[in-house]
Computed example of a mutant assay.
Amino acid sequence: MEPTSSNMAAQEELSSAPAGFVLNPFAFSVAVFVVVHVISLCIWRLFVDAKLAVWKYSPQPFGMYLFWGILVLVFIGFNFGMAGFSAFRQPVRGCIATVATIALAFLLPGVLVYGYGALDPTFTAVGGAGYGATGLIVLIGFYGFGILATGMSGWPWSDSGVKPVAGSVAQLASGCCLTGLGYFLLIYPNLTTTSSPHAPLLTLPVAIGWFYSVIVAWLTTYLIFDNWPWSMLGRKSHTALAALAGNFVLGTALYSIHLALLKWALMPSSAIEKLGTSLPVWPAQLGVWIAFWLIFWVNVAGNWPNRFSMFTNRVIRASVCWGLGLISFEIYTRWFAVSVLHEAEIVPGFGGDPLTWVDLLNFVMLIYVVYFEFYGLSRKKTVNDMAA
Rank of each mutant, 00 (worst) to 15 (best):
M1N: 13
P3L: 15
A9L: 08
Q11T: 08
E12W: 02
E13M: 13
S15V: 09
S15P: 02
F21H: 13
V22C: 01
P25F: 09
S29P: 02
F33I: 05
H37D: 00
S40W: 02
S40L: 07
C42I: 15
C42D: 07
L46E: 00
L52R: 15
A53P: 06
F62R: 03
N79G: 12
G81W: 09
M82V: 01
A87N: 08
F88V: 09
P91V: 06
I96Q: 06
T98C: 10
V99I: 15
V99T: 13
T101A: 04
P109C: 04
L112R: 00
G115N: 00
A118E: 10
D120T: 12
V126P: 03
G127H: 02
G132I: 01
A133Q: 06
V138M: 00
I140P: 07
Y143L: 14
I147E: 12
I147C: 12
I147V: 15
I147F: 08
A149S: 05
A149H: 12
P156K: 02
P156H: 00
S160Y: 08
S160P: 04
V162L: 13
S168P: 10
A170H: 11
S174M: 14
G175L: 05
C176G: 13
L181Q: 07
G182D: 07
G182I: 02
I187F: 05
S196I: 00
S196Y: 04
H198W: 07
P205S: 08
A207M: 05
I208L: 01
F211P: 03
F211Y: 01
I215L: 10
L219W: 11
Y222P: 09
I224P: 03
D226L: 12
P229L: 01
L233M: 04
G234N: 10
T239A: 14
A243Q: 07
L244M: 00
F248M: 04
F248E: 08
V249L: 14
G251C: 06
G251R: 02
I257Q: 01
I257V: 14
L261M: 15
L262I: 13
K263H: 13
W282I: 09
V288Y: 01
F292W: 11
L294E: 02
W297V: 02
V298E: 11
R307E: 14
F308A: 10
N313V: 14
N313K: 12
V315W: 04
V315S: 07
A318W: 05
A318T: 12
I327N: 07
Y332M: 07
Y332Q: 03
T333L: 06
F336R: 01
H342A: 08
H342Q: 05
E345T: 11
I346E: 02
G352R: 03
W357V: 12
W357A: 13
D359E: 07
I367Y: 09
V369Q: 00
E373D: 12
F374E: 03
G376M: 03
N384D: 15
D385Y: 07
M386A: 14
M386Q: 11
A387Y: 05
